[in-house]
């Protein structure tokens, strides 16, 4: 896809993350260009989700630097709330606020955190809701929605902040199979519209379709980095081959 420029949105140098004595990410280096879609793959516990959480300060890092648009963002812990307005994140579990309507969920960040005009945000929110076909649910509460609908709203909630980059942490992992598609479609459309995205997923078909670059991680280290065509057809490392085989088996069985 020829949409990306040579402008680095996110740059990570020598990131080190430990939980007590356990090293999760020894020395992680990573960058994303504007408009690029990067998919992080790897076995459970390899550190890919932790890495994503480090990017918006949900996890404290022990060493290294994270730059957003060339500016170091991890130096001052008290500024994270400002940085997070530019980094959208969607989680695995449905994370909508149960005590607010769908519309209130979406408007909270833009109005309270960003201090934007209510009417302007409302128009944007309704446009986004229409785009994912959920405008009629705007007055509903999250408990009235299906898992797939909730995840689409969670994506919109992040999008309405006009982020520079979107992070997706296994957003389809706890969905019923028939709802996975509707969420992936929204993400695919976003990718095609030029959003910069970093995605942790186990949906191989989606990774093939949406990714500009695939990064395979094991034990906190980047083992392989390639275009999806190359990675899925001829992985170089043994670990990646083994990893992909497990999924091939799953696909054949199902």
């Amino acid at each position: 896809m020829a949409k990306q420029s040579n402008e680095k949105v996110l740059e990570v140098r020598h990131l080190n993350k430990k939980y007590g004595e356990t090293v999760v990410l020894p020395d992680f280096n990573f960058e994303v260009q504007r408009g690029e879609v990067v998919v992080l793959l790897g076995p459970s516990g390899c550190g890919k989700s932790t890495f994503l959480r480090c990017l918006n300060g949900l996890e404290e890092i022990q060493a290294g630097e994270i730059k957003l648009n060339g500016q170091i963002i991890n130096a001052d812990a008290t500024k994270w709330h400002v940085v997070r307005q530019k980094i959208g994140m969607v989680f695995q579990s449905y994370d909508l606020f149960p005590h607010m309507t769908i519309l209130e969920n979406i408007l909270l960040g833009p109005i309270k955190a960003q201090g934007r005009d209510r009417l302007e945000v409302l128009q944007q929110a309704e446009k986004l809701l229409e785009r994912v076909g959920l405008l009629d649910k705007k007055e509903a509460y999250p408990s009235q929605l299906s898992g797939g609908q909730k995840q689409r709203i969670a994506i919109i909630r992040a999008l309405c902040m006009n982020p520079e980059i979107m992070l997706f942490d296994e957003v389809t992992a706890s969905l019923d199979p028939e709802m996975v598609r509707e969420v992936l479609d929204v993400m695919l459309e976003l990718a095609q519209a030029g959003m910069t995205m970093v995605i942790v997923t186990h949906e191989m078909g989606f990774a093939k379709a949406a990714a500009d670059r695939v990064i395979f991680i094991d034990q906190g280290q980047i083992i392989e980095e390639a275009t999806p065509e190359l990675f899925f057809t001829s992985p170089k490392s043994e670990r990646a081959k083994k990893f992909l085989n497990i999924f091939k088996f799953n696909e054949q069985v199902s």
């Binding site: 918006n56 997070r84 307005q85 959208g88 994140m89 579990s93 606020f97 909270l108 960040g109 955190a113």
Partner: peptide, 21 residues
Amino acid sequence: KIQIESGLSIGLTRWQLTRYI
């Protein structure tokens, strides 16, 4: 925890997180 992290991830300050979530 996920409610708190969701609130943080949309850029709420500690005070806003307490007040609204």
